[in-house]
Amino acid sequence: MTWVVWRQQRAQLITLLAVLVVGAAGVLLLRSSMSSYLDTHGLASCIASGVQPGSTCGLAAQEFQAVWFDRMKIGQLLVLALPALIGLFCGAPLFARELEQGTHVLAFTQSVSRTRWMATKFAVVAAPALVVLVVLQLLVTGWLNAAGKLGPLVSGPFVYSNFGTSGLAPVSYALFTFGLGMLVGALSGRTLAAMAVTLAVFVVVRFVLTGVQQFLLPTQRVVSDDPSQPSVTDQAALVVRSGYLDARGTPVPDGAEDRIGQCGSRGNTEAATDLATCYREQGLAKSFSDIIPSSEVGTLHLVEASIFGGLAVVFVLATGWALRRQT
């Protein structure tokens, strides 16, 4: 049974192997070249600090980013795209092509149960696809870490491209699209339709979950006693809400910008020299921010992965139900 499935899926498996070899070779070569650039231009000490105002790394670091930043973003794009491609070209055709061509009838007449047939096809294709994804994810992550704050990681772990290419995110996305593609293919029996629906649903779900990401974890409120200064010290944190508190500790409603404007220069009136005092005179006693700290990014990965993973399990079970109903 396994040998037959390997033969049926050899095109996808050969393609996955080619993606792994070409992708891994490309990332490794680019990382090696980038490391040489860092050493040649004396930027090794700037990896941890990045481009800071007044830093001696400033100009050289900016030149480095002009050469390498977009290349690293392309590496991230590869990892972002792979889960969708796995669902489109591995998950969607897995059963849709059999139903479309009628070859499922032969499989159903064999001594092997439909459940075992489905499980074998799933394992033979899904396992190699996930291995390819994880290997490329680790290689790209290592490449980004080698650049440190000179690369895309300077934007923080919650930025779309950084979050979607780290932790459990790529694997959970791939399981979701693979399971979705299988289900739509088993229900429709049309490969192209399954691919189109899989891509559309994945894009919509990713967009929705990215929009509500900030509500998946409880926030922490940080407060600055100086209302003229930002309250957030964790620059990599996800800021959900920010504003000002009055003397009683109550958030100031919309319109704080107008009060702040009273402390700036207006016409012949010069700006206030003591901004903190001026802000308090306008009823802005403190500044605050509701944040998800950067240390919680792993927890957010777990929450999101549980959503995508749970949906993937539902899709797999529903696919089994759909195949058992096929004649």
Score class of each variant (00 low, 15 high):
4 V>R: 14
8 Q>F: 05
9 Q>K: 01
13 L>E: 02
14 I>K: 09
17 L>H: 09
20 L>D: 03
23 G>T: 15
25 A>D: 01
28 L>W: 05
28 L>Y: 04
29 L>W: 11
31 R>P: 08
38 L>N: 10
40 T>Y: 02
45 S>G: 14
50 G>T: 02
53 P>H: 09
53 P>T: 05
54 G>R: 06
54 G>T: 04
56 T>Y: 10
56 T>R: 14
56 T>S: 15
60 A>N: 15
62 Q>F: 01
62 Q>M: 08
64 F>N: 05
69 F>Q: 09
82 L>F: 02
82 L>M: 10
83 P>G: 13
83 P>I: 12
83 P>E: 10
84 A>W: 06
87 G>V: 02
90 C>L: 10
91 G>W: 00
91 G>Y: 01
94 L>R: 01
95 F>S: 03
97 R>D: 09
98 E>A: 02
101 Q>K: 07
102 G>H: 14
102 G>Y: 12
105 V>W: 10
106 L>S: 06
109 T>P: 05
111 S>C: 10
112 V>N: 13
121 K>T: 07
124 V>Y: 06
126 A>N: 03
133 L>F: 08
135 V>R: 13
146 A>G: 13
151 G>C: 03
158 F>K: 06
159 V>F: 14
160 Y>Q: 15
161 S>M: 13
164 G>I: 04
164 G>V: 04
165 T>R: 02
168 L>K: 01
170 P>C: 03
172 S>M: 11
174 A>W: 05
175 L>R: 11
177 T>P: 02
178 F>R: 03
184 V>R: 09
185 G>F: 00
188 S>Q: 04
193 A>T: 15
199 L>V: 12
200 A>V: 02
201 V>Q: 00
201 V>E: 01
203 V>S: 01
205 V>T: 00
206 R>E: 07
207 F>A: 15
211 G>V: 13
212 V>M: 03
213 Q>A: 14
218 P>Q: 06
219 T>Y: 01
226 D>P: 12
228 S>V: 09
228 S>E: 09
238 L>S: 09
243 G>N: 08
246 D>V: 08
247 A>F: 02
247 A>H: 09
251 P>S: 08
264 G>L: 12
266 R>I: 15
267 G>W: 02
269 T>A: 11
271 A>Y: 04
272 A>C: 00
281 E>D: 15
283 G>L: 10
288 F>H: 15
296 E>D: 08
300 L>P: 07
304 E>R: 13
307 I>W: 07
311 L>S: 08
313 V>D: 03
314 V>E: 05
315 F>A: 13
323 L>V: 11
325 R>P: 04
326 Q>R: 14
